[in-house]
Amino acid sequence: MRPFIYEQPTDISAAVALASNFTTRDDQPTRANAQFIAGGTNLADYMKLGVAEPNRLLDLNRLEEQKLRQIRVTEDGIRFGALVRMGEAADHREVKARYPVIADSLRLAASGQIRNMASLAGNVLQRTRCEYFRETSWACNKRVPGSGCAAMDGFNRQHAVLGGSDACIATYHGDFAQALIALDAVVHAEGSRGARKIPFAKLHRQPGDTPHIETDLAADEIVTAIEVPALPWARRSLYLKIRDRESYAFALASAAVALDLDGETVREARIALGGVATVPWRASVAEDALQGKKLDEASAGAAADAAFAEAQPHQHNAFKIELGKRTLVRALLETRDMKV
């Protein structure tokens, strides 16, 4: 592990100023000399492995703005401060009641210890766990642009079938992000060029030819809050996560689903898919396919087929297409049958 300078700015503007001092406009946040750290559950790992090599860490845990640590429920929705820990949000009474899909997605992620440390903003910005990315002796376009992708023709059971490119098929492994993208969440960020709002769906970037560019953020921008708009019918929502063991494993496939039902007919559906795509994945085609339809195994199956119509399998992950579809069908039917 390389030595690094560790700083603890005490408010957002100081943190931004520091970051701005030690980074340039073109720096990617994950490749910049100065990087922010909150829970450290992802970045510290990657620093030990030599995957991330910032020489300056800006610890956000001392920022004095209390809103960063608050969950605020209003008529407009719910606002999560960026430094709220996963565990706090998962256990929040109003979150559980109003947005079960959010609480589920957090509860089913990581382990209790990690949920107690990891911040919500850090969670959505977590980097892929692709084995070939994690270990510096492999070729990886995300880690070293232009070096190639060892996963493409290697062992790729956990890799993405949606949103991949010739340069990268690394899966986005987060769970919370699937709930957020389904609920049209908005990210608040502050940087040297001021404060702005980013629709959650625009936060992550598909790999394309530049898999090392992972988000829309600048290197000196701090996520300050995540806002989820009010959606009364999101009480009928859930997150279903299918994995190799019962806890503490990434999704092979997952589905975040919220349903507005008129009897058994779908007025509106929100669907996002996890474990199968390179970025948080909103399945709008599946939502459209269900609108106005009676929700049953057949219509759910048709929606799932639509969601995976563009899927691209590789040697070991072809099963994710079938599994992803079945996961969505099961999630839709279980959401339909929820007692709310």
């Binding site: 766990r129 063991r245 019962e246 806890s247 503490y248």
Partner: peptide, 10 residues
């Protein structure tokens, strides 16, 4: 992370 063994929940 990737070499899985049972956890308590299993």
């Amino acid at each position: 992370q990737d070499y899985l063994v049972p956890v308590n929940a299993d």
